[in-house]
Amino acid sequence: MPVLTYLEAIRQGLWEEMERDERVFLLGEDIGVYGGAFKVTEGFLERFGEERVIDTPISEAAIVGAAIGAALVGLRPVAEMQFIDFISIAFDQLTNFAAKCRYRWGAGVPIVVRGPCGGGVHGGPFHSQNVEAYFFHTPGLKIVEPATPYDAKGLIKAAIRDEDPVLYFEHKYLYRRIRGEVPEGDYIVPIGKADIKRLGRDVTILTYGWMLHKSLEAAEIVAQEGIEVEVVDLRTLLPLDDETILSSVAKTGRAVIVHEDTRTGGIAGEIAMRINERIFEYLEAPVVRVTAPDTPIPFSPPLEEFFLPQVEEIVQAVRWVANY
């Protein structure tokens, strides 16, 4: 099976969807002639032409708004945010327009808004954010964030084929650092399904994105101490896969939730609450979380490293719940 980088897997998924379905088109800043700031769409203009690979003005609200309009009348737009931080400018279009159309008047809005998220590359406060929590609170949206090349390709295809608006967050730290086997040709990773990336019986780690890889490292370390960690890659953040989350935690009785996003109002809080409401009596220890602190993302390398959750913190959290 071919080995691709995370970025190549996204590109391949997009490419195949554009080959498969002529309703699929791309719009965004610098995605055509330049091939995108991270080169995800390199070569697309030459293959699909400027009608299906549209370089737009710097107008996130117009990019997403136009995607909504085109989707309403039957197309399948994929809008790129050059950095996912800029999605805030399109907040209104996503949370008030796209998310509420089906509920209000029965119209589906099959759009995908994708873009690079996350830190680790010294992007500073405006090129490193994780924005899922802003949208996690909006019924009508779906949110996915793959951590592996296999999932990246399968999820972009599922997102494009979904009948509702999907936010597809790609972690820029993983773009060229993570490689993996990716089948040639068509397959999808269903939205709403988490994936157990490592089986274990003692502690469950629930995580996604870059933090999946740090969590797997942490699991390796504690395994040498005899703690067997089950690592659940959420993959879809909205809607959460309650079945996989709750059955894993019911099995281990111990849960550590790890996310790169900041702490207060982060997704970990919601997951902990679901565990509390539904399987409280299965717990052997309090649910804990490892997250970034409640600050903006700092720029300078020592500051950023201090800000980002580290493997050692995950290890400590696992030990703590294991020994509770």
């Binding site: 107008s59 997403v64 708004g65 136009a66 309009g69 085109a70 989707a71």
Partner: peptide
């Protein structure tokens, strides 16, 4: 912007 998208389509 939404109607611009419809016009685009």
């Amino acid at each position: 912007p939404v109607m611009a998208g419809i016009a685009l389509a």
